[in-house]
Structure formats: structure tokens, C-alpha cells
Amino acid sequence: MVADIRKYVQHISLSPDSIQNDEAVAPLMKYLDEKLARLSASLVKENLTRVLEALWELLLQAVLQALGANSDVSTDFYGRFHFTLEALVSFFHAEGQGLPLESLRDGSYKRLEEELRLHRCSTRECIEQFYLDKLKQRSLEQNRFGRLSVRCHYEAAEQRLAVEVLHAADLLPLDTNGLSDPFVIVELGPPHLFPLVRSQRTQVKTRTLHPVYDELFHFSVPVEACRRRGACVLFTVMDHDWLSTNDFAGEAALSLSGVSGVLRPQAGGGARASQPVTLHLRRPRAQVRSALRMLEGRNNKEAQEFVKKLKDLEKCMEADP
């Protein structure tokens, strides 16, 4: 059935946008219905279940291959495969008589569903998802890359965000002497929410894994932008190299929606009155890179500029010992 399934998935891939989704998927569904009716009549339940599980994985891989073989296609193309995926889930579940939903929506399904969802997003939605994934990810080894202590507050009267970098602890030793020369880059994201805001950076603290900064930065931004989806402060810790490229030590993201003064004005006190927050540094994980892969395949200027900036940072990461 392998060659047949790939042929029917290709039929969906090549179907013009002008035809309805159910019409494009119909040949595949008819084929599966006929084959599985025959298998169901000749196999005991245990063996039928094994066949269904193998077919399900085969279908998911065939759709993933079809997505990988196409670029510069319309959002309707990905919408059609999303329709196909849900139709197949319903077919294989068979109102409780087939495979359980939890097994159908596990493993390769999650990867495929994420790919389809991101492909259907606009460039800005995809960039927002990149930052949302950074906010959601948790370090699996919280002490491996160290910690950063910060304090943030929105000053309504001045219409600016105050970000204070206090200190860091247990940073990675990235120099041959077993220490580092760390500094912190502070920036707001996503870029389209803060187009005129430039990143700022702390001073370099030499020969230490426990730097104390106590530096306060201000960003003139409207509070409405801070309330938007994915709006965050991104802290990137770098090891300053006096002779070559700076090394990446770790990063952390803080959602602006939870910052004091953003959702509701707060009288007096300023940034130094808010409570310090300890952030665990980490490296970008697969979930974050998924959104980045979607942006890499897009030819518009906004996507390419965003990817180039991140690639420059990745070069620093790859240079780490």
C-alpha cells in the first residue's frame, strides 16, 4: 500500500485551489475505506490494530514529505492538508471503534500539526510564535547555564519601560581561565511591535561567573505594545572575547504582560520598587527552532532580516567550546 498512499497524497498536493478540500481528499479516503474493509474482514482485532498503527504512521510521513517537497505555495495548500489530517484522524478513530485519539494525536502527528499551523501563519504571526515559544520553554537543566536576576516596571507617566539588570550567577565558564567576561544584551520583541526600539547592553564584567551589574535601562514604548501577543524582554548573556567573536552563554525571556504597570497603572515607586525576578538561562530548543524553519523558507524581506539576525547569534553559539 506504500506506493498507493504516496500517490493519493501527491494527488492532494497537486490539486488546484479551485476545488473543494473534501473533493481533493476523496480518492485517498475511498482507497483507505476499501482496503481497510477488506483487512477488517480478514484480520483478528489485535492484528488489525497493528496494521492501523503502521498505516497511520505511513500517512503522517507521506504528508510530511509532501510538505517538504513544496515551497512558495498558498496558505490554501496548507489549509487543505490540515483538513486532510483531521479527516484522517476521524477515519482512523472510527467513532471509538478504531485507534484511540490520544495515540492518533501523539508523536509524528504533533510535529505535522505544528508544521501546518506555522505554515498557515503570516510572517508576523510566525515571528510572534517564535517569541511565544521562548516564553513557554523551560530549562530542563535549570542550573546548567546559570541564572539572571532582573527587575522591570512600566512607568505610565513617562510612557517607558524600565528594565534593571541586577546580577547573574553560576554562568558557564567560556574562557580558558575557567571564568568569563559576561555582559547582557537587553532587547524587546517581537521587532514589529517595537520597530524604533534599539537593543541596549550592560558593561562587561571581567573574570567572573557571578557578575553584579545594577544597571537600569529605559525603553520608550507605548503600553499598548507591551500588552500585545508575544511581547517580551529578551535577555542574552554573552561572553566578551577581546580577540575574536563573542560567545553565547545563555538567554531568558520575560513576558511583558506580567510586568508591573503594564496591565494597570501603578502609583509611585518606579522600577526599583518592583520585586526582582530570577530567570534561568537556557539554549533555544526544538520548539523555538520550528518557527525559525518556517521563516527561513519565506522570501519576504521581514522574514529574511529576522532570520539573518538569529543566524548571526547561532554562529556565536556554535563557536562555544
Rank of each mutant, 00 (worst) to 15 (best):
K315L: 12
L101Y: 03
P276W: 02
F81N: 02
M294L: 11
L196M: 13
E95R: 12
H11F: 13
L166Y: 08
K136L: 14
G178N: 08
K35W: 07
R201N: 06
L256D: 07
R144S: 04
T202W: 04
I127G: 09
Q203K: 15
R147I: 03
D239M: 01
D17C: 02
V44M: 14
A169E: 15
R298H: 06
A286E: 08
L67P: 01
L32W: 00
V9W: 00
L281S: 06
P321D: 03
L64N: 05
V165P: 04
M1K: 06
L179Y: 04
I12S: 00
D76A: 13
F92K: 03
E318W: 10
L209D: 12
L256K: 03
Y78T: 12
C121T: 02
Q304L: 14
P284F: 07
R138Q: 14
L99W: 00
D76K: 12
H167P: 01
K30A: 12
S108I: 05
S103M: 04
P284Y: 09
L295G: 11
A169Y: 08
A168I: 11
A41W: 10
Y213S: 06
L118V: 11
L174C: 12
V163I: 03
R283K: 14
V73R: 15
L209N: 10
L104M: 14
E302V: 10
A271T: 13
P284L: 02
S149H: 15
G230H: 05
T123M: 02
E128L: 01
Q159F: 07
R124S: 10
V163H: 05
A225L: 02
V259I: 10
L216V: 09
E224D: 13
A267P: 09
F183K: 13
C121P: 02
G297S: 02
T206F: 10
G258S: 10
R111I: 02
F219V: 12
V262T: 01
R147V: 03
R283Y: 09
G96S: 02
C126F: 14
Q97F: 14
T75C: 09
R117H: 14
E155A: 10
L171Q: 09
L48E: 00
R50M: 03
D320K: 15
A267H: 15
E314K: 12
D133P: 03
A62C: 04
R227G: 01
N177T: 02
A303V: 14
V307K: 05
F235P: 03
R228L: 06
P191G: 06
D33F: 04
N300S: 07
L193N: 01
L209K: 07
I185P: 00
R160L: 05
F77S: 03
E95H: 06
S257N: 12
S149Q: 12
Y109S: 00
T49A: 10
L132Q: 11
V186H: 08
P27F: 04
A319G: 09
L55A: 05
E215F: 00
A286V: 01
K309G: 15
V2A: 09
D4P: 00
A286D: 07
K45Y: 13
S139M: 04
H153G: 14
F91N: 08
A303Y: 12
Y78W: 14
W242C: 13
Q203Y: 03
V89G: 00
A156T: 10
E224R: 05
E57M: 11
V197Y: 12
